[in-house]
Structure formats: structure tokens, C-alpha cells
Simulated scan of single mutants.
Amino acid sequence: MTLYLKHKLSLLLMAIVSVTFINLAINVRASTTDAPTVTLNEPLQTDPNTRNYLPTGTEALYTKIPNQKDAKISVKATDLKSVATTADQGQTYFRGYRVAQTSDGKFYLKVVSFNKAYRGWIYVGSNNPSSDTTSVTNGLASVQTFKEETPSDTVAKTTFYFTTPKASTLTYTAPDWTQYKVGRNLNATTAYVNDALKVTQIGTKQNNRDNNATYYYVEDSANPQVNGWIKSSEVSAVKQTFNY
């Protein structure tokens, strides 16, 4: 009787182990099959200036396309929310440069912050933003970083001069931190202290970056290499005398 019971128990144990392994195999296959696959992954081709964003704080930033092998959260959604409301000069704007779609119909953008501190993939909704990169939802909001307008007649007809020409007084191709990898045009204005400047455009930083500072686009007919954007506070209609 004892041998019989041992034999029965042994068979029962083997059956339990077999069922367990079968269930594990089924679960592994199911999880592998259920994971969405990447059906699209390509660079964005639209005007880079239309691909500037701030995170909404509702989606996290991932190291790789979410749900793919080794994809991890690099920045939590709550932390991205604080990045979006930081009133800096624009270092934490995001530039989108790749789009991906997964088999479950979700779209993701790969982004990098202007200061390169943040980089990764973020969910942007169920519509393909490739042709219109401003039409994103969920994790990102399309933003204007700098708003330009025509100067008034008074400003346009006024001759301006650099207020404090020095190494830190620069002109910019695009005002600092308003476009990704586009910045200073001139390293210093010291050599052009006596040049007359004309203002042809006015612009304002947006989203409370740098306190929404106003910039002038100045043109220097004597030295066109000076032409560029400069803070309005760094030029004046009063010509000063500098001893350089």
C-alpha cells in the first residue's frame, strides 16, 4: 500500500509540474505576442521651427519606444511637468526629430531638449504627426518660442547704438534658446561701438521664458556681419562715448 501511494503521489507531482510548465510557456508566448511591435520609425521632414514643444506632464519620457525590449522610463511625467513650467531662457524646450508608430496604433516622437539634458521617446496620440508636427496631443504641446512683428514707424526710423558693447553683448541669428542649435551670430560687439543700427524686426520670447524678453533685429550697413537679434535693452538711441 505504501509503495502504491508513493507511486500515485509521484505521478500526481509530475502532472502538476507538467501543467505548470505548460502554463508558463503559454503565458510567455502570449506576452510576447501581445506586445505591440514597431511598424514605423523614421526621421521627421517638416520645418524644424514647427517641431518645438513643451511637455504636458501627462506622459513619461522613455529611453526607447515604449513596450519594446529594454525600454525604460528616463523622466517621470510629474518631473516633465515641472520642466514645462520652468521660467528659464528656453533651455528646456524640446525639439522633435523622429516619429514612430506601434502596432496598437500609437504614435511616439523622439525629442531632445535644447540644452540636451533630456532625450527620449514620448507618446503623442493616435494620429500621425509626420505631415503636421504641430498636431500632437497627450505628452507634448506644440509651442511658439519666439513671436516676431513689424516695428512701429518710430522705432524703424530711429538710429540705435549698442548700449554696452562688450564680450557679453551679442547679436544672434535666432535669440538664445528659441531654436535648437541656432544661437549667436556675433561673439562680441566691442569693435562696432560707433556703428549706426537700424531696427527692422521686433520679437518677443514666449511661454514666460526669460520674462518674455523683447528683442530687436538690428542691421549695420557699415558691417553687415553684425546683423542679428539683440535684447532691446542692449541698444539705445543715445550714442555714448566708449574708451576702448
Rank of each mutant, 00 (worst) to 15 (best):
R119Q: 14
I122M: 13
F146E: 02
F146N: 04
K116H: 11
S126K: 15
N138R: 10
S142Y: 09
T134I: 07
G125E: 02
T133Y: 02
A141K: 14
G125N: 05
N127D: 15
D132I: 10
Y123E: 13
P129M: 08
G120T: 01
T133F: 00
G125V: 10
I122V: 14
Y118L: 12
R119I: 13
T133I: 06
A117W: 02
Q144R: 15
K147Q: 13
G125M: 08
A117N: 13
Y123K: 11
S126E: 12
L140V: 08
G139M: 07
N138Q: 15
G139V: 06
D132H: 02
A117D: 13
W121L: 12
Y123S: 12
A141N: 10
S126G: 12
A117I: 01
G139A: 06
T133K: 05
V136C: 05
Y123T: 08
S142K: 00
Q144S: 13
Y118F: 12
T133C: 00
N127V: 12
L140I: 02
I122R: 11
S130D: 07
F146G: 07
T145V: 05
S135G: 03
V143F: 07
V136S: 03
S142W: 06
L140T: 02
W121H: 09
N128Y: 05
Y118Q: 12
G120D: 06
S130F: 10
T137Y: 00
P129L: 03
A117R: 12
Q144T: 15
I122H: 12
A141C: 00
K147P: 11
D132V: 13
T133W: 01
L140R: 03
A117G: 09
G125K: 04
S142A: 14
P129Q: 03
T145G: 08
K147W: 04
L140E: 03
G120P: 10
P129W: 06
R119Y: 03
F146S: 04
D132T: 08
K147N: 12
S130C: 04
R119M: 13
S135T: 09
S126D: 10
L140K: 10
R119S: 15
G120E: 02
A141I: 08
N128V: 07
S135Y: 02
Q144G: 11
T145E: 04
K116Y: 10
N128D: 14
W121N: 05
D132P: 04
S126M: 14
S130M: 12
T133M: 04
I122F: 13
S142L: 00
K116E: 11
T133P: 06
S130A: 15
W121I: 02
N138H: 13
W121V: 03
V124P: 03
N128P: 15
Y118I: 01
L140Y: 09
A117T: 08
W121D: 08
D132R: 03
T133N: 01
T145F: 03
L140H: 02
Q144D: 09
V124H: 10
D132A: 02
Y118V: 01
K147G: 08
K116S: 12
K116T: 04
N127R: 13
W121M: 11
G120A: 05
V124D: 09
A141E: 10
T134M: 09
T137H: 04
T134F: 03
V136W: 08
S126V: 15
I122P: 14
R119D: 14
N127I: 08
S131V: 01
N138I: 09
N128R: 04
V136A: 01
S135P: 00
Y123H: 15
